[in-house]
């Protein structure tokens, strides 16, 4: 299974690379936000820092936070703890994320999806957020465990979105950094 995933990932990666020879790389400044209020966004902030990406992080970003932003990184994944800490309902969060995505699209700010939580951020209440972001992303970086059923691969294929699949959370930083070089 892992071999198949890796082979498939390589193909996707090659497709992504060829795409980027022609496409303009993502640009700074970057805003990182959450879709589902999971703590994963904090890890993505760490990963971005390791890649020397000076990114602002706003967990509950709204359209007004996109002012001057050139790239939006969204980390999807539901966390009831996170929603509780934010004092909002799942419906509130979905409405906020939808508005943010709509605003990014209308301003032509590309969205990068970073799904790093594996199974812990799949199915259940997470997939509505995953699907919303994946369908609007210009690039996806995903930890393989979260794509064992090809959830992201299917969307990437259908919408012709470059997808990079890696095994470990720590490995997601490098492909993210390369998008800005």
């Amino acid at each position: 299974m892992r071999h198949v995933t890796l082979t498939f990932s390589m193909i996707i990666l090659l497709a992504a690379l060829s795409f980027f020879t022609a496409a303009q790389p993502f640009q700074l400044p970057v805003l990182i936000s959450s879709a589902g209020q999971s703590a994963d966004v904090k890890l993505v902030k760490m990963l971005a820092s390791r890649e020397n990406l000076d990114a602002n992080t706003i967990l509950m970003a709204t359209p007004s936070d996109l002012e001057g932003i050139k790239t939006l990184i969204i980390v999807p994944g539901f966390s009831s703890k996170g929603l509780g800490a934010a004092g909002i309902s799942q419906e509130d969060e979905m409405n906020r994320v939808q508005e943010l995505v709509n605003a990014a699209n209308s301003k032509e700010i590309p969205i990068i999806l970073m799904h790093i939580g594996g199974n812990a951020r799949r199915k259940g209440q997470s997939d509505a957020f995953n699907a919303l972001i994946a369908n609007n992303a210009k690039h996806m970086i995903v930890v393989a465990q979260g794509n064992e059923d090809n959830f992201f691969t299917d969307i990437a294929t259908a919408k012709n979105i470059p997808l990079e699949v890696v095994e470990k959370i720590a490995e997601t930083g490098e492909p993210l950094g390369k998008l800005f070089k």
């Binding site: 999971s38 703590a39 994963d40 904090k42 890890l43 760490m46 966390s79 703890k81 996170g82 939580g117 594996g118 199974n119 812990a120 951020r121 930890v143 465990q145 470990k168 959370i169 720590a170």
Partner: peptide, 25 residues
């Protein structure tokens, strides 16, 4: 994952639940 800040608050705790500075899965 949900409590990553707590887990990372102490090096000894992080060494149990993380690898290369990121959470085990």
């Amino acid at each position: 994952l949900d409590n990553i800040e707590t887990v990372m608050a102490d090096e000894a705790t992080m060494n149990i639940f993380c690898e290369d500075g990121f959470p085990l899965m």
